[in-house]
Design a protein around this nucleic acid. Sequence first.
DNA 1: CTGTTAGCGCGTTCAG
DNA 2: CTGAACGCGCTAACAG
Lengths: 341, 341
Amino acid sequence: MPVTMSDVARAAGVSVMTVSNVLAGRKRVGEETRRRVLAAVDDLGYELNLTARHLRAGRTDTVALVVPRFDHPYFGELAARLARRLDRSGRHLVVEQSGASREGELEALTLARLHLYDGVLLSVVGMTPDDVARLRTTVPVVLLGEQDMPDRFDQVRMDNVEGARLATAHLLATGARRIAAVGGSTSGRGMTMVRTLGWRRAHEESGLPIDDALVVPCDVDLAGGRRAIRQLVAEGTPFDAVFAFTDTLATGVLAGLAEAGLRVPDDVQVVGFDNLDSSEFLVPGLTTVDPGHEAMADHALRLLDRLIDRAPDGDRGTAVVPEHVTGPVSLVVRGTTRPAA
Amino acid sequence: MPVTMSDVARAAGVSVMTVSNVLAGRKRVGEETRRRVLAAVDDLGYELNLTARHLRAGRTDTVALVVPRFDHPYFGELAARLARRLDRSGRHLVVEQSGASREGELEALTLARLHLYDGVLLSVVGMTPDDVARLRTTVPVVLLGEQDMPDRFDQVRMDNVEGARLATAHLLATGARRIAAVGGSTSGRGMTMVRTLGWRRAHEESGLPIDDALVVPCDVDLAGGRRAIRQLVAEGTPFDAVFAFTDTLATGVLAGLAEAGLRVPDDVQVVGFDNLDSSEFLVPGLTTVDPGHEAMADHALRLLDRLIDRAPDGDRGTAVVPEHVTGPVSLVVRGTTRPAA
DNA sequence: CTGTTAGCGCGTTCAG
DNA sequence: CTGAACGCGCTAACAG
């Protein structure tokens, strides 16, 4: 039987409300009363029940970030940035995993869970635009992800085409002629498609031919990058550079190249995408596309807060027009590419 | 004004309880009634309020993992492993950050938040044993962390001394004679101290002298590892190997060594600790201590579930005796060390 | 198989 | 500045 507020009130000889006021630091409470209450709290080992407070207050001062996987550094870094901002406004961030392991049935459950938070930043990777369109929720939601989603929701993403174009153009400028697109796809959707598009565009702008044999689809993880290189080498497909679609892939690529006895950047140049914290520390340092992490975090929370502020009034009349924000990208040149010719 | 269960009940011409039963899939409900309820739910856009359910049910089927920082790969990987297990038993994992940014005042708030969960896995890094001893909570808590904590709580950790001894002994066996302990300390507490102890012990077992100039305290992050090497080089302290106290530190160390023109493993050998997913993919592959991640996750949840199961009865009589579990470690040999002489 | 009664623990009314 | 009622949305019990 847990200790409740009224237990404390009885012990301190005051009313429940007084206890509540003392604990929430709300109204002014007499110094002596206050001490009595705190003593009783300490004495009984009373612990505030946030669930009850949330039910009553209708808000939780907590925002959730839902990511596909916990063990992906990109999302860890994102979470840390968001948490820093939310802390500043006295709120909390909790991170949940949407999983790649759970089926559609769980989507419903996930949605129910969203109600535990004032707002949700939903990182969509696996879901299709159709899945998202089917989402029915009154919870403030901002989408994060590279695939264009239904415009009923706010969405923040990076300029993938431009980033991929920059990366590829840089490789072309430093003398590369056969650039493998690791993580690419000739038919897919989402991140994979838009970055492949940027890779194509850079080739077109240079008037260079495009060889689809250089597009290597793979799992977007460390092992995937390494396997992609193994495959290229096994096939005997010639290449003098790799544009890896994420820094994680690039890390796997570097391992694969080393394994194959190919030197970076002398034999093969490499560019990644994401500018993870660790990319600077690889040997050699990874040239990569920086998606403007801080700006993205700012946008995401701005859009979310817009929705949260509006929520109490209800939707009628003042409906917020959803925005799709695309952040600018830039290239960070390090040691996996050669100086421009 | 959100749609509530009784709105749905009215619309469907049934009682609230029936709606509840349909939605929770609890008792059997007539097929037609069931359809009417679901139709009303869909019609009104009803969304379950989990907060209310939690308040009423007294549990949330959710476990929290509290980590020092979101952007630390070690914790991301830990979270993923825990989530996998909890999903299997139909529960959820949420991750919160304890922050290094928030002061002691927030400790209280953190404690209140713990009540939102059935149990909490608390990763302690910054807190001292005294801080922990002061924790007053009835929430099931299992501590994770390398510093020995008051035995009022369950705790899971790795065999740090043995891991550090293994790492150092391996370096000695492969010919190293001056092994820098990056992340070490001659006076600290916690992880830093126990791993330094293992480093010492290996030296003692080999009868080799210990030079405290080789103990380099630093921030436990990527930049810290690099800075440690810069410092050693700047001081002119000779060293032919590095035992980095975490793989993240080791990654920074490798960057620092490259910067200084030192080859790995020819000029300097390196061993890390943690066996992160990415460590296998560094070039060269990082030799490191594997703390038996899976076993640790198993232990942590076993201890937590023991507490959760007991909770409903109250503590009297059946008090669970807290356990301190230390998991076995092993050495993973890769390219940053030379073959044994 | 469905409805009624009661209350989870807190906070927003209003009086005093 | 403090106290007493009522209700947030849901579900465990028991009726019917």
